[in-house]
Write a protein that binds this DNA or RNA. Sequence first.
DNA 1: TTGCGTGCAAAGGTTTTGCATGGCA
DNA 2: TGCCATGCAAAACCTTTGCACGCAA
Lengths: 150, 150
Amino acid sequence: MNVRARYSTKQQRELIEFMQADPGRHFTVAEVCEYFRSQGQSIGTATVYRHLERMVDEGVVNKYIIDSSSPACFEYVGEEKHRESELCFHCKCEQCGRLIHLHCEELADIGEHLASHHQFILNPMRTVFYGLCAECAEKEGYRPAAKIVP
Amino acid sequence: MNVRARYSTKQQRELIEFMQADPGRHFTVAEVCEYFRSQGQSIGTATVYRHLERMVDEGVVNKYIIDSSSPACFEYVGEEKHRESELCFHCKCEQCGRLIHLHCEELADIGEHLASHHQFILNPMRTVFYGLCAECAEKEGYRPAAKIVP
DNA sequence: TTGCGTGCAAAGGTTTTGCATGGCA
DNA sequence: TGCCATGCAAAACCTTTGCACGCAA
C-alpha cells in the first residue's frame, strides 16, 4: 500500500473535507457513506476503507477498536506537523454502551508510567477503559469508593 | 442475560475444566471447539459464545480484542472470591500476544482519577492496556518518547 | 496514454439469533 | 413436567479482495 495518494481525486478531497469539518469527531465507515448519501453524493465502502487505512498508516487518522462485532471508529487528527490535539482516551460504559472521549493530561501520564516502570509501550488507540458512566452509576445506586469531586 | 447459569450442564463443566487446566492461557472460541473435537467430544460454537459472554459479564473471564477482523481472545481469571485481593491490571502485547499482569499502586490511582474528574467508575477487571511488551518494543526498534528507567 | 482510483459484487471472517430438540432439576 | 441449555443453520455484520471501468496526470 502506498504511503501517499498519487492522484488527487474527488472522493479523497471530499472525505478529507468531511473529516476536517468537525475535527475530533468520531465516525465509522458506514457513517461516512451515509453522510455522502445525505448530501446527494455517493462514495463506495471499499474506497472509504482504503483511504482510511492509508491515512491510519500515515498517522493522519486514528483508528479505535472498541469491541468485536461493532465497526471500527476513526478520528481525523491531521498532519503531524500541524497537529495540536492530544491523544484521545476512551471510556466505554458496560451498561448503556455509551462511548466517552477523554482528552486528559493525567491519563496521558499512564503511558509514561507504564514505559518507565513496566517497560510497556502503551497504545492509547487500542486501549479502552470499561466501567460505568455517570448516569448508569447513579441508576445502579453505585457508591464509589473514591469521593466524587464536582 | 442471566448473571449465573441456572443449570449445571456437561458442556459448561467441561468448558470450565478446559479453562482451569491451564490458567492464564489465551484461547479463541474456535480453539475451544477444536479442542473438544480433538478429545472426541463436541460443543457448539453458539454455546461457547453464550457461556463466555456470560462469564465476561460476571468478571470470571476476560475478553481481549487485538484487532477487527480477527477473533476475540479469552482468558479465565477465576471467581472473584478466590482471587487475590490485590487489584491486577492487564497489559496485552499486540505483537506477540503476551499478557502481562501488573500489580501497581500508581495504576490503581487511575480509577480514582476517572471517578473524581470524569465521573466514570472504572472496572479494572475488564480493562486492558494494549501496546508493546519490552521484547517486542526492542525488536521493533521502538524509541519511546519517555526514557526507560531500569 | 498510462496506470492509479473507484465501486460493485463477492468472498471471507466472526458473532449473533431463531428454533426445534435435548437434558437438568 | 417445566424450563433452561444446546446446537444447527441461517442471518447479520464488518472488512477485504477481484476486477472492469473511469479518471487524473
